[in-house]
Computed example of a mutant assay.
Amino acid sequence: MEADSNKFIGGADGPTSIVFYNNSHKLSISQRIQITINNLKRRYWARRIVPGTHSLEEVEELLSTKYGFTEVDVSGVEFMEEYQQMRTTFLLEDMPELAADSSYLSSTSDDVGTIIKNLELKLQQERMLAESIPSEVYDIDFHKYIRRGKSQNDEMHIIIERTHEYIGGGAGGSKRFIREWKKIMKNTYLYYGVSEEDIKTKSQRYKELLLELII
């Protein structure tokens, strides 16, 4: 049996990650090769992206009718938890002055446990702050679509947040199932598309499409 695997697109969709690194660390040969490959892919796709857009509502219709996704029940506990996480993320992006103090996270301490504990405390403070702000004052338009495979472990999901024009998602299960999800994500981004102005200005929407194509 193949091991479960996961992939997340977009920081707002997945859990917070902590990466510790050494600035003096040199890139390995394999890392340099991968960077070169990604640069070649980026140039290849940049020349082939053409104007053409669809709305997020049309994207959601595509997910349902072509790919067999089902929208998650908005009253479910898991949905509400993910909604709150994403609402907190976007709230702090839109109003960064509300973010909890993070100066202590830049400590040079080698105590990873302490750093993680401080980060969890910061996230908890920000979550409580977000929950204290009524949805009438600030809210997001959050939708989650899921599709399951033949195996019990096969499950993919795609997140649509209309207010900030966000598309993200993840998958777990067999390698074949995850490859299918990656293909669906690429097709979803291509269908969502970009305008001539997006291409000209290299907008965030354009950058996200290009990133998805080279993964």
Rank of each mutant, 00 (worst) to 15 (best):
M86Y: 09
I49L: 02
I49E: 03
E97I: 14
R47Y: 06
E78V: 05
Q85A: 12
I133C: 06
E81S: 04
S55R: 06
E126N: 14
S102L: 07
S102F: 07
I116Q: 12
E57K: 14
F79A: 14
T88D: 05
E78T: 07
R127G: 09
E120W: 08
T108F: 08
E93F: 14
H54Q: 04
M128R: 12
D101M: 07
E58Q: 10
L123K: 12
E97L: 09
A100P: 05
Q84L: 15
E57Y: 14
L119Q: 10
L56Y: 10
A99L: 06
A130V: 05
T53N: 00
L123T: 08
Y83F: 14
Q125N: 09
S103V: 13
K117T: 15
F69L: 05
P96S: 11
M95D: 07
D110Q: 04
E58A: 05
A99C: 15
T88P: 03
G76R: 01
L98A: 13
S132N: 09
D73Y: 02
K117D: 13
I116K: 14
L56G: 03
F90E: 11
E81L: 07
F69W: 12
G113N: 07
V112P: 01
I116H: 13
R43N: 02
T89F: 15
S109C: 03
Q84C: 04
M95R: 14
F69V: 02
L123I: 15
R43E: 06
G113W: 00
R48I: 01
K117L: 04
I116R: 08
A46N: 01
S75C: 05
L56T: 04
T114I: 01
P134F: 07
D101K: 13
D111I: 05
R87K: 13
I115M: 13
A130P: 07
G52K: 03
R42K: 14
T88S: 09
E131D: 11
D111F: 00
Y44H: 06
G68I: 09
Q84F: 08
S135D: 08
E93M: 10
L91R: 09
E82V: 00
F69S: 09
D110S: 06
M128Q: 15
L121I: 14
S55D: 03
E58V: 11
H54W: 00
E126T: 11
T89W: 14
L105E: 04
